[in-house]
Each structure stands twice: as C-alpha cells, then as structure tokens.
C-alpha cells in the first residue's frame, strides 16, 4: 500500500491541504498536485537548479525534498514572484530587458535563487552573482544576460536607479 500523508503547506501565500504519497518530491507535488507547473524539473538530482523554490525564505532544490517535508512550511514558486496586480518583480523586469532568458526552462530556478540571493546580498559584484548562480545551469544564454539583469535589478531594488 502506498504510504500517504496529509500535509498543510502554504504556497505563494495560499494555504493548501493535500494528501500526498511520501515518496513524492516537493517539485512533483507543486507541479502535479497543485498544478503550479512554473517550477521545472531539469535533472532531479540537484545539480541543474531549475526546480529551485523558496522554502521559509531560503532557496532550496524542490527535487531534493519530499513534499511531506514541506508540511507546515511556506513555499514561494516563480508564480508567486510578481505582484498582486501582475506587475513583474524587478528581477523579472530586468531579465526581460537584458535578454536573461531564451528557452525559459531554467528561468524559474534562476529567479527564485536570485530573489533569495539578492535579499542577503543586496550589492553583489559580477563575481558574486556568477558564483551564486553556479548551481543553476543555463544551456542557452551563456549567463551574461542573467548576470547583467541581476546587476541592474540589485540597483533598482536598492532604489539606486
């Protein structure tokens, strides 16, 4: 018999109560049970970073956590980054302006990682940003647009632009 538990989890500010098989990863739970398909599974072994979500404020790999471990916790996914009226987060705006995405598959993990990173490092150098996203693989952009976008978003978020 499958091992099934009931969990309570807050996702993007909305409370969810769901039954989940204990072997289900947090990433699969978000995508399949909640229909939040913005979180992408790129490697399912914790290297590519596409599945990164924010758990209680910290960026984590949703492929390396069980959904049952999110019980009682708060999760933010890429769907939760824009404002209530749909206005883009400064980082999303900057990605758009600086061509920080091509196919868009790694983008959700880049954004969630960098939102958490910029909170703790509001004035990053290019080197800081490159190290911060070294756990997020992008096959399309060569990273430069992402780095430029992050440098600008940091300034915007600091009110320096």
């Amino acid at each position: 018999m499958p091992d099934i538990r009931e969990i309570q989890v807050s996702v993007n500010g909305e409370d969810h109560s769901a039954k989940v098989e204990t072997r289900t990863s947090l990433g699969d739970f978000l995508r399949q049970n909640l229909g939040l398909t913005g979180t992408h599974l790129g490697c399912e072994h914790g290297v590519c970073g596409a599945c990164t979500v924010i758990l209680d404020g910290e960026a984590v790999r949703s492929c390396l956590m069980l959904a049952v471990q999110a019980n009682g916790h708060e999760v933010t996914t890429v769907e939760g980054l824009a404002g209530e009226e749909g206005e883009l987060h400064p980082l999303q705006e900057a990605f758009w302006k600086h061509h920080g995405l091509q196919c868009g598959f790694c983008t959700p993990g880049m954004l969630t990682s960098l939102v958490a990173f910029l909170r703790d490092n509001p004035n990053p150098s290019e080197r800081d940003i490159r190290e911060a996203i070294s756990g997020n693989i992008c096959r399309c952009t060569g990273y430069q647009g992402i780095v430029d976008a992050t440098l600008e978003a940091a300034k915007v978020m600091q009110g320096r632009v």
């Binding site: 995508r31 398909t37 913005g38 979180t39 599974l41 868009g104």
Partner: peptide, 21 residues
C-alpha cells in the same frame, strides 16, 4: 525589441510538454 515570449516564461506560465495534463 524586448521579446514577446518573455512575460509568460518569466512568470511560470510557459507551456512545456510536461505541463500538459
């Protein structure tokens, strides 16, 4: 010109094969 594709992809509203149910 900023890409038409991007607002969808930036907000998690892309539609890749695995997103189809």
């Amino acid at each position: 010109v900023q890409r038409m594709e991007d607002p969808r992809l930036l907000t998690g509203h892309g539609r890749y094969v695995d997103d189809i149910k």
